[in-house]
Design a protein around this nucleic acid. Structure first.
Lengths: 272, 272
DNA sequence: CTTGACTCTCCCCTAGGGGGAGGCCCGACT
DNA sequence: AGTCGGGCCTCCCCCTAGGGGAGAGTCAAG
């Protein structure tokens, strides 16, 4: 009944001594005999077989508790199920890694991903727009905006009106993970528009705005907001109305890294 | 100088309060002001910009200390270098994941990857072989075996001798991570062979062997060895010579999952 | 003044071990 | 029979990037 101490067993199985002690402690691979007086662990040669199975399963990054399940059962179907489930997890992780890597590539491409924004003050003139207001939240905002622009285009087409500038959205409320709110989707037009049940014409008032130009995916626009609000606060201004975003090019035809969005905050200079 | 407490700042930046406290502690993102009496952290709005950069870099799984380096420098080249280095790491990890996944797929394919071996006792008859002995280690063993079979084939071709069975290797020493040793590469032949400086003919003696058949990549053959040595010890036999492996099909033409290797240990039954 | 929501520090937890301290133990050699 | 070098034990802290929670203090609105 050749018993070997942990060091030799470690060499045989190419599992580290630390790992073997851990597997003992959690019951995954108990030594055949433990000397009660010295605490020395002694393994039978035949246990190297199980140890090898552990090593193989660990080499595919299977968690120890699942290895335990696999080694504890005699049902080959359960084993198969566990392996397949683990494969699914690995594949998912792989896909996530690929997405992360692709995103990092895009960050490297446009170096200014980390570069600061330039905040300027601009006098916006009054502007006639065709508009529609929707109540939305972060999950449905993409669909809602698409539908909103659809309604606008439909109404404008019916009245023979064409856009007089890039579309924009006024964010009357903060839309984040847990709060919903109103946004006003607008397309500049040259003259009055009568509209329908959803769409109406109105005038965006002239305003002094603090503005920054965001280049890149919409996902990252938060930095522009933070920069502008920080700038406003640092320069002793006050926000004088809801912010708006002006979409300078078309997400349908331009890749996300090249999207240009102007963020504007109306301000006044009351504070000191 | 609008100061916001940690909860509001957390919502603004979509970084958890725990994360913000951690970034404070490690100096990555210090609050603009900490109330000395209450310990409350207060952030300036402008800090959300830096926070957003942290969030973006964390979203590509960059370690915090490297983010710190990137945010601490003004040198865009250094930033670029860090990003590219991180991309390399991610790509490497991705490739490793892919290899792991592929290996797991192969494990699933041949379900018996975890199945036990059947150990049998066989009487091997004496066998003439052409042989060559090389001293090798785990790193170079692949090349050495290839070169050894090359020498054998060359010598046999010169003498007009053809193989009389599948090739085999006698492992006179244990070859593992840190130890090197001798192996004897053999090809069975029908008659005597005169050989050359490297190659010689000899007789493999008849022997009683404990044997198991390994199906799958050579990488996993350790389990077969462990099973056999454990079996020998459990059944009261003793090892009576160095083990040998018989290669029943050709790794050049057969995919690794279908490789068949017979592992044999000569034994005697002296012990009880 | 009270109350409810925020925030603080401190501690333990994650998965799978690595590194090391301090102290016993084993086997081989003299 | 001693002794010496290496092997083995337990215990503790360390790693990532925070998460969960306890117990206590704090802020702001009514």
């Amino acid at each position: 009944m050749n018993l070997v101490p942990i060091g030799r067993f470690s060499k045989m199985t190419r599992l580290s001594v630390k790992a073997l002690r851990l597997y003992d402690e959690m019951g995954l691979l108990r030594p055949a005999h433990v000397d009660p007086s010295s605490g020395y662990r002694y393994y039978e040669l035949g246990q190297a077989n199980r140890a090898e199975a552990v090593r193989i399963l660990r080499s595919v990054e299977m968690p120890l508790d699942e290895i335990q399940v696999i080694l504890a059962t005699d049902d080959p179907e359960l084993v198969h199920k566990q392996l397949v489930a683990h494969r699914e997890r690995l594949a998912e992780r792989l896909a996530a890694q690929e997405r992360t890597l692709a995103y990092l590539e895009s960050l490297i491409q446009r170096e200014e991903g980390i570069m600061p924004y330039e905040v300027e003050i601009i006098e916006e003139t009054a502007q006639l727009v065709a508009a529609t207001k929707v109540h939305t939240n972060l999950r449905t905002i993409g669909n809602d905006i698409g539908a909103g622009f659809g309604s606008l285009m439909q109404a404008m087409g019916r009245e023979g009106v064409t856009p007089a500038g890039p579309p924009l959205i006024v964010y009357h409320d903060v839309i984040d993970e847990e709060t919903d709110g109103d946004i006003e989707i607008c397309v500049p037009v040259a003259g009055a528009i009568s509209g329908d049940s959803n769409v109406y014409g109105r005038e965006l008032e002239a305003a002094t705005v603090a503005t920054a130009l965001h280049r890149g995916p919409y996902q990252e626009i938060a930095r522009a907001y933070h920069t502008i609000t920080g700038w406003i606060s640092d320069h002793g201004h006050e926000m004088a109305g809801p912010p708006r975003e002006i979409y300078l090019n078309d997400p349908q035809t331009v890749p996300p890294e090249e999207l240009l969005t102007r963020v504007e905050f109306p301000i006044c200079s009351e504070a000191g």
